[in-house]
Amino acid sequence: MKTLSKIYLWLILALLYIPIIVLIVFSFNKSGGTGGFTGFSLYWYRELFRNAEAFSALKNTLILALAAACLSTVIGTAAAVGLEKMKSRHVKQVILSTTNVPMMNPDIVTGISMMLLFVFVGGMLGMTEKLNFFTLLIAHVTFCLPYVLLSVRPRLRQLDRALPEAAKDLGCTPVGSFFRVELPNIFGGVMSGFVMAFTLSLDDFVISYFTTGSSYQTLPLLIYSMTKKEVKPDIYALSTLIVAAVLLLLILSNVLGGRERSKK
């Protein structure tokens, strides 16, 4: 039984990884395509680095992710604090359920629903370019918000209710008490909400696809437009770099997380 389990586990893991590994290996293939390995070459990477579009897409993606993560973390954290103080359970439940709609709804529906809003409002205002960076930003903040609330609220609920009272008792104004006492104690949750929002924004394709204009292209959108054409191994190169970046971040966060844990 034990060995059977092991075989099963590693078989599935192998199936999960083979395509990605093939992709990585063939990004170094001299000839394009994955039919056969004809020799090691960095040709496709050179090709990729010559592609100015890829760099601007990378820059766009990072700017968008940073902006969306900051904005959703601020709004979401404030909302979590406000909700905690809210008396009516009913109102709270309605707000939370509505917040979670983009999490439960298919991305394509979230995407087209926002697109319809932007197009309609843009049309009313007579704008020529109805979709742009800001519509993209709004869309990203919207789908990040439930995740920020999801990681901040449990920390806030764990917080001893007497702490803010103690701070006020010692002379803190309510706002001061938030920054001096509550925020430092929920900071872990706020940070993980931020990181979650950042990665979700980096990763998003479907919602971006419907809410961006021609002027603002992100990395997933670039990959999409690249794959629309015939197979070109520079996508393999780009994907390899992205997978490497994700792996690096995951290892880093695990090492840091592990250190945090051992400190406690």
Partner: peptide, 20 residues
């Protein structure tokens, strides 16, 4: 007069020390 402006201080039931 709100709590933070009173010259009255409190020792709370479960101490409410600031863990950070």
């Amino acid at each position: 007069v709100p709590a933070h402006k009173r010259s009255v201080n409190t020792v709370f039931q479960k101490y409410a020390l600031f863990p950070h």
